[in-house]
Design a protein around this nucleic acid. Structure first.
Lengths: 195, 195, 195, 195
DNA sequence: AATGAATGAGCATTCATTCAT
DNA sequence: AATGAATGAATGCTCATTCAT
């Protein structure tokens, strides 16, 4: 009976995707080469094309992983019996709440991912679809809270988060620490209160 | 009197910078090659390095041009006797006010510029310095309007604009047309009224 | 047990260095291009940068190889119980003794290497250090033979060899075959005899 | 009556040749570009090809100038009633006698010229022809002084000078200052005395 | 004579991808 | 599964030469 090797494909794919993520946080997608990704993953360069058909394919899997991660973070924080307004606050917390050093890297990863999405159609489609879904859900919550222009509010909320990430990644002086969570929260309360 | 050939460097530099801008709007900085920029400008590839020492130098000149353009747009709209609150509104209008097709390209240019800034240090420094200056001015206006946490408010305002640009560039469905100007304006009014 | 592909870098590096050597003998370092070196080695151009980080790195390895070769030739000829005067004669023989067609190529290689050393600092340093060591050893032998101004004599001996190589490489008419070995030998005998 | 401009071609050609000489002393012929030569000469790049058909043509004129200069230096020092032995000493003095800082540059110029001669056929031919003439004259003097193997002695003398130049250009440690004039002179005396 | 722009081939180098082992 | 070699197209850049003024 032939036993063969226990397939470790999933582990390898994870390693590779994680290595790309780290590279993207540091230098961006274009500057990351198969060789540098392999080096970071501790693998031979040739192996990357055994597990993935192309560099783009690794990126697409990374997109899935990041989206999944983000969705999970939200779902973990969201209690089933929460009100729409509470859910909106939870969304903000799930996106900008963490703080600390590792977040820097996460932010850079996301910013570089978005940058790539703007120019690479396959990525753009996937990210846009995901964001579209988020917008819909957010809009539904705003609507349930009787907020006017719920779609616009949802778009604004997402814009605030995206923009805060970018400003953070640019290391601009004069930006108060933790301003985003605070201010977005304030905006949210005001918007939901006023209607 | 020896005349020789009249220099046309300024014109050519302008052509080249504009070609890079167009390329960046379409495919981003990394994907734009000297060859493709030259083709768009209708010039021989070698000529680009006659007028610029490097590809990066073209980018840096483009950064200056875009910053200058943005600053001018604000200054043109800002009346000298405007109140701080009015100036804040003017800032928003100068950034997100235009509308129309050509704006799409402008937004894509800016988004790709910011993306490049995140990973290329020289660009990052220049952009961060500029943004820092904007933040300072905005904060001063918020402060003059007796708004609490003026630095945070300034950072939030800039974040909203950056984020709105990115969301726009991603062509996400479900984003209402012109939401940004409307919503940022609303936030601004509310924030300045409450203090 | 995973085997993968066996490394053949050492062999390839040798091939490449040898190809550069041949190119240098024929056209010099600057005129030798990665493409021409690759063609001579029968390899794809891209492969050269897989095995070496740069063209300069190939040159530096060639320098080492040539120096090593030259040192070996001397050490093989030098008997352990030889007198200082004999060792000086051996040195001359090791450098100019061979004769025959292949020597032409060797001489051209060395002359082009020295030419490159004059203008390329890394090469210059290495070559100068090696020559300095040779001078020291030669001077010690002259000193042991009670020759006056041993350092000057050593420098003169090396100059004679370098100059003879250059004259040879220039294919000047009227230069008697084998004059260098003969005349340097004569000088050496006279110098060591007189003191 | 048409007057036109007084032609200044000769002056310009001189400027250009001198600029190439300086560039060669500093970085060598290959690394010297038309642009850098023009900059050093204080001229527009395009002008170089007005006065010379090619970069090689400048080099060839430089070769003529240097040869002419060297010949003049010898002829100035050589008294008409000098003995053959004295003329040989004069030759050495004319080549290696000067000393001082500017000589460093001259030496580097010559060494780089010889390096170029080895690989560029037109230059090689010219230099070889000139050296051949020098060898003949030197051999005649050795012969007149009843020295054995006059051609070999002449070749040795030239080799010594070429080699000393190269050793000098390599900035090798442990080389006594002014060794060449001293040692070549000694060799000459010994050789002419013994016969 | 002179200027400075323009051209296009060539350079070293990078890199995603493929292949032999 | 895995390794490391191999490929060849592409990139930014340099440069001798030509050209319009």
């Amino acid at each position: 009976m032939i036993m063969g090797r226990k397939p470790n494909t999933e582990q390898r794919r994870g390693q590779i995707v994680e290595a790309l993520r780290a590279e993207m946080a540091e230098i961006g997608y274009e500057r990351a080469s198969i060789k540098s990704i392999a080096a970071r993953a501790g693998l031979a360069p040739g192996l990357l094309h055994y597990h993935f058909p192309s560099k783009e394919a690794i990126l697409l899997e990374l997109v899935e992983a990041l989206i999944c991660q983000a969705d999970n973070r939200y779902e973990e924080l969201a209690s089933p019996q929460a009100t729409p307004v509470e859910l909106l606050g939870t969304f903000v917390k799930a996106r900008v709440g963490l703080g600390g050093k590792p977040e820097d890297e996460q932010v850079r990863t996301w910013v570089n991912l978005m940058a790539e999405a703007v120019n690479q159609d396959v990525v753009k489609e996937r990210v846009a679809a995901w964001l579209s879904g988020s917008l819909e859900e957010l809009a539904a919550n705003f609507r349930a809270a009787n907020v006017k222009h719920p779609e616009a509010k949802a778009a604004m909320l997402v814009s605030m988060i995206l923009g805060a990430f970018q400003l953070h990644a640019l290391s601009v002086e004069g930006v108060p620490r933790g301003y985003a969570a605070e201010e977005i929260g304030g905006w949210l309360r005001q918007v939901c209160a006023t209607g």
